[in-house]
Amino acid sequence: MTFCNLKSLVLANTMGVLLVPGMALAQADFPTKPIEMTILFGGSAQTVGQVLSDEMSRASAQPIVAVSRPGGGGAVGYSYAQATAADGYNIVWNSNSISTVYYQGNLPFNYEAFTPIAQIGVEVPVVAVQSSRGWDNLEEMVAAAREQGQPLRVGVSGLGSFTHIASAALFDKFDLDVIYVPYGEGRAPAELLSGRIDVAVQWQSQFQSHLRSGDLLLLCSTGAQPLEHGDVPTCHDAGAEGLDITMWRGLVAPEGTPPEVVSYLEDLARTATESGSFADIAVNLGFTPAFLPADEFGELIATDDAIIGQLMTDLGLNNR
């Protein structure tokens, strides 16, 4: 009856038998036991993480087990993983949250405490409004907000969260009077539909069914590249010039993990990300697979950390 487990065991065993003559000898030392993948958040991040660990287990000699360590905006999971031995048996399904939670002051270490393995994909926050408000584009909304004479209420995931920073960067460009209302997972669409907030900045997957039914409307997406699906302009094109905020998700291991272990995990991540089944599922979850190898991923983390640090300082959210 052990679904997840029996399946991965059977898989691991068959893979083991097949691989022993060749690959397993070359990789004699790693892995000899299941690898734990720490998941930091619930919702779609957790589901994508579970799909990823499942795909990686297929290619691995040992199962990759997804373990949930939520809380503290990611601080709990990061702290746990950072304290484990740097042997590759504890990896983290991470994101830009490493930077946001650090500058928020809730972590005693920053991204340098981890060795990058690979970027798996990206997610872009989108700006949604109720279609009945009659705002067809970003500029109409901004004009209406200026006219109404009271602050615009914007729903975000939590204060200091990535969606908060993205929307703060956006509305900062228009110098609008904004109240950020923090909601947990998945409540923003309901609040938007009921009209208690004017705008919601969230991951696209949350709005999917309401977009198709026509109740909600996307004004723009905060990344530099337009979204693959749907006809949504970037915020840059819609009037917020220079805005480019994209969240990446990837895998990291504690600093000091041996390079050969990292490259083994990197290969697993590449195989998993590039498999057709992962792509199919990811699209359904509103996640865009985009593999980047360890070195490029490392550079991206460092550049983004600097950008987020600067942004949070500008917005008065930096507690460092």
């Binding site: 009856m1 052990t2 997840c4 487990n5 299941p34 734990e36 087990v65 373990v67």
Partner: peptide, 17 residues
């Protein structure tokens, strides 16, 4: 827990498996 439900219990630091 470990084999049927897929909930992993502490393995200990002695590496006994």
């Amino acid at each position: 827990m470990n084999k049927l439900l897929g909930v992993y219990l502490p393995a200990g630091v002695l590496g006994l498996g």
